[in-house]
């Protein structure tokens, strides 16, 4: 494993939800580091806490206990706006349901992140177009999501996640809505971008093909990390 400081570091992470008198423990003390350049998959049965863990790492939710550090920044110390800015600059998201902005074209969806970052119009258009070319959508820049297939939409989502060169890309079941051929192409794409761009990936998945392509695999059961291939490879 690289000896650099981790991009993501979780310590003693717990998350409890309360519904009336019933308390549900979604995460129960997770310690996890994601290193720069990691291409890691996160698996586990439904309700094991995968999405909750991604939400906490992505700053979309706050832990009941414990701490998340992203690229040296303690998320617990940030206000709502600072968290939003951190997501904008350091984290890329890929969702199961693609979640493109329906009124924007493919290139505008990718540009959206750069526009929020204040990148000049000409530069952002050039970078967004290049990102779409990178994911194999050259010539489809002006199509709106409704005129793209599921696989094409997910490619736009990957381009959007990577265009701002984030520290880590969090992908929640990115292949779950895709047929096997398209899912395979998407996995190849993400693996290639990980290798070429060097961005870390943490992918929540049930898909064995995704797990097979990952360099690191983490199992989550009942809110705990029950196995981590990285730990297994570490010298005793």
């Amino acid at each position: 494993m690289p000896s650099e400081a981790p991009i993501v570091s979780c310590r003693g992470l717990k998350k409890r939800y309360r519904t009336g008198a019933v308390e549900t423990v979604a995460l129960n003390g997770v310690d996890l580091d994601i290193a720069p350049g990691d291409f890691a998959t996160l698996a586990g049965p439904s309700g094991s806490g995968k999405t909750t863990l991604l939400n906490l790492i992505g700053g979309l939710d706050t832990p009941s206990e414990g701490e998340v550090v992203v690229d040296g920044v303690r998320l617990g110390e940030l206000g709502k706006n600072a968290l939003t800015d951190l997501r904008l600059r350091k984290i890329g998201f890929v969702f199961q349901a693609y979640n493109l902005i329906p009124v924007l074209s493919a290139v505008e969806n990718v540009e959206f992140i750069l526009q929020l970052q204040g990148v000049a119009p000409a530069e952002r258009r050039a970078r967004a177009t290049a990102a779409l070319k990178e994911v194999g959508l050259e010539g489809m820049e002006d199509r709106r999501p409704g005129f793209l297939s599921g696989g094409q939409q997910q490619r736009v989502a990957v381009a959007r996640a990577l265009v701002s060169r984030p520290s880590i890309v969090l992908a929640d079941e990115p292949t779950a809505n895709l047929d096997s051929k398209t899912a395979g192409e998407l996995i190849d794409l993400m693996a290639r971008l990980n290798a070429e761009a060097g961005a870390s990936f943490l992918i929540s998945t049930h898909d064995a093909r995704v797990i097979a392509r990952s360099r690191r695999h983490i199992e989550l059961t009942d809110g705990r990390v029950t196995s981590d291939s990285a730990a297994a490879r570490e010298p005793a």
Partner: peptide
């Protein structure tokens, strides 16, 4: 989604 992507 807009907020998740970084829109205040």
């Amino acid at each position: 989604l807009l907020q998740a992507l970084g829109m205040r």
